Computed example of a mutant assay.
Amino acid sequence: MEQNVHFITVATDDLDAVRAFYVDGLGWESRLDVPGNIIFFQVAPGVMLGLFDSATFREDLGGAVTDTSITGLTLSYNVDGPDAVDRVIEEAAAAGARVVKKPQRAAFGGYHGHFADPNGLVWEVCHNPGWRIDADGTVTVN
């Protein structure tokens, strides 16, 4: 198997709430939206984020998974500077996110904050001066 991820799929108990948050609140455009089932967003070159209705998610896995709560997972969005971190956290909060960690200096030398979407999915908004994301999506760690 190649070292690659094309889809990140997360179960959600309230698909309508996350749709309202991402589409109406943050202004994201879906690539595919199947009401009552799943919504997909292109989040990077070659990478889609799918938010999948929990009941349908469990059915799709043949009942092998019963707990669809989200723990131990953070999606990170890297921005150009501390002001951008503050702005994105404020935008997310205005759209209905719960601020988990207010923006602050980070132990790694950068600046970051965290918010949770209506499903509890935690996002880190980060400025890390030691990381660079090139136009083709390649991440360089200095």
Rank of each mutant, 00 (worst) to 15 (best):
M1K: 14
M1S: 14
V5L: 15
H6S: 15
H6A: 14
F7A: 07
T12D: 06
D14Q: 08
D16L: 08
A17I: 03
A17R: 06
V18D: 10
R19W: 12
L26A: 13
G27V: 11
G27L: 05
W28Y: 14
E29H: 13
E29P: 05
R31Q: 13
V34T: 11
P35D: 09
G36K: 08
N37F: 09
N37Q: 13
I39E: 01
I39K: 03
F41K: 07
V43H: 04
A44L: 10
G46W: 07
G46Y: 02
G46P: 02
V47D: 03
V47K: 09
V47E: 06
L49G: 00
L49E: 01
G50R: 01
G50M: 02
F52R: 01
S54R: 01
A55L: 04
T56N: 09
T56Q: 11
F57W: 08
F57C: 06
R58D: 01
E59T: 14
E59K: 13
E59M: 12
D60Q: 10
G62Y: 03
G63Q: 04
V65W: 07
D67Q: 05
G72M: 03
L73P: 08
L73A: 09
T74Y: 12
L75C: 09
N78R: 08
N78S: 12
V79H: 00
D80K: 14
D80V: 09
D83T: 13
D83L: 08
D83P: 02
V85C: 04
D86C: 10
R87W: 07
V88D: 08
V88E: 10
I89H: 00
I89R: 00
E91D: 15
A92T: 11
A93C: 04
A93E: 14
A94N: 12
A94Y: 05
G96I: 03
R98Q: 15
V99F: 02
V99G: 03
V100K: 02
K102R: 11
K102D: 15
P103N: 08
P103Y: 09
Q104Y: 05
Q104P: 08
R105K: 15
A106S: 13
A107D: 15
G109R: 08
G109L: 11
Y111L: 07
H112A: 06
H112E: 12
H114D: 13
H114R: 12
H114V: 05
F115K: 01
A116Q: 06
D117S: 12
P118L: 01
P118K: 00
G120N: 06
G120E: 04
G120D: 01
V122R: 04
E124H: 10
E124A: 14
E124N: 13
E124C: 13
C126V: 15
H127G: 02
N128Q: 10
N128E: 12
P129D: 14
P129G: 15
W131N: 08
W131M: 13
A135I: 08
D136H: 06
G137H: 08
G137Y: 01
T138A: 07
V139G: 09
V139C: 11
V139I: 14
N142F: 09
N142I: 06
N142S: 14
